[in-house]
Nucleic acid binder design. Sequence first.
DNA 1: CAGTGGTCTAGACCACGAA
DNA 2: TCGTGGTCTAGACCACTGT
Lengths: 233, 233
Amino acid sequence: MPSRSRAIADDLRHKVSTGHFKAGERLPSEAQLATRYMVSTPTLRSALALLQGEGLVEKIHGSGNYVRRPLRRITYVGGGASPIPTLRATVRTTNLEAHGDLPALLNVPPLSPLTEFLYVTHDGKVPHSLARIYVPRELAPTDCPAPEQMRARLADLCPPLSEIQERLGARLPTQEESTALRISASLPVLSLTRVATDTAGRVVEAALVVLPGDRADALFTTCLTTDEGISTE
Amino acid sequence: MPSRSRAIADDLRHKVSTGHFKAGERLPSEAQLATRYMVSTPTLRSALALLQGEGLVEKIHGSGNYVRRPLRRITYVGGGASPIPTLRATVRTTNLEAHGDLPALLNVPPLSPLTEFLYVTHDGKVPHSLARIYVPRELAPTDCPAPEQMRARLADLCPPLSEIQERLGARLPTQEESTALRISASLPVLSLTRVATDTAGRVVEAALVVLPGDRADALFTTCLTTDEGISTE
DNA sequence: CAGTGGTCTAGACCACGAA
DNA sequence: TCGTGGTCTAGACCACTGT
């Protein structure tokens, strides 16, 4: 039962993939498209909403609907590798007390002092990822290192890191996240919580990373040469 | 700028969390809610659509809007462990030829013979996950093993498995997926592609798993005791 | 300022589910 | 059958963008 909006979305998707509408180009106005497809504006808008959810179309209020340029894919590599390919990033450092889920994540008492690093990485002018990294304040560097320096610093710790736990989920972005990443509110994000523990069992870092679902994935590679890890439990 | 629909969604969310509407209960009809909030039905429906995207409300056509019972969370454990906690599953086996992304995934020539196992796991009556597992036909068992037996069989292979690669993404479900998992089309899913390679470098299994984003996550644990894996690349 | 999308109204008709 | 949600219409008014 191809509804009217679905059919229009399919047609527009096809017109984009065949180059009838090119990347970066502005689509005809919603009123024009509605006339051309002989539907009302709400119907046409719901068709565009589908394409928005796929990350194929970007709406700019007051300006128009644009075909999104194909963006470089971003691959998060799990297992202790660099969290995000080296990109330009803006950093904001904040001191705060542990609240919400943070005490449980970092295994510290509530209200204990933390330092938050808020990273927004960019590829050119396009925001690519959003990361909030929490570190117990006594372990926090006083300057604002780039993410990759941050990890190098963690690797230098005594005692060294012993375990990294990464938990991934899929959800819709919060309003704040969709603004920061400049994505539609209906475009799913890949959400990653990474907790790094040192050999003393202390949590040295908890990172909450949000990646846009249309161009990001996370890759984990496990070697089983010694049969460890295989289990049918 | 709290729009009308957002405000209504917030109010309904609050009414659910405070127990004013209980789990499993049917909400008043959309027409009644629209009257109570003094908005038109499309506006009210857009509020419900937000809650649907969070997995908080389930719409059943012809019957009403229901508060979803809190479902058991499902945790996929990565790195070669059992793909999905042991649940009841329905299996369908199909023989087909490699097409689309499959030749590249399995590293076999196009149109080479494969066997597809389609698993739908259930927790009680609720569908929980959808998995399509592709195996080169010469490696496929002739019966339909349960997922956990399947993995045991893979572990018995000569040559044994050497590497498992898992790639995760977030996206909206296809129409087929939202039907099979009985979730709203606006609820993101966690999509997982797992490729298992044996020591001879041959791909013995490619699994495409889809998990509902509102109640599933994937967990990866990396031990760094020997410093391997640390890299600031 | 003109043109665009954002949100909303007050209906209409159809398809589905339960009794 | 009747009440429910699914989809759609044909407008309206406001907010934002660019000139």
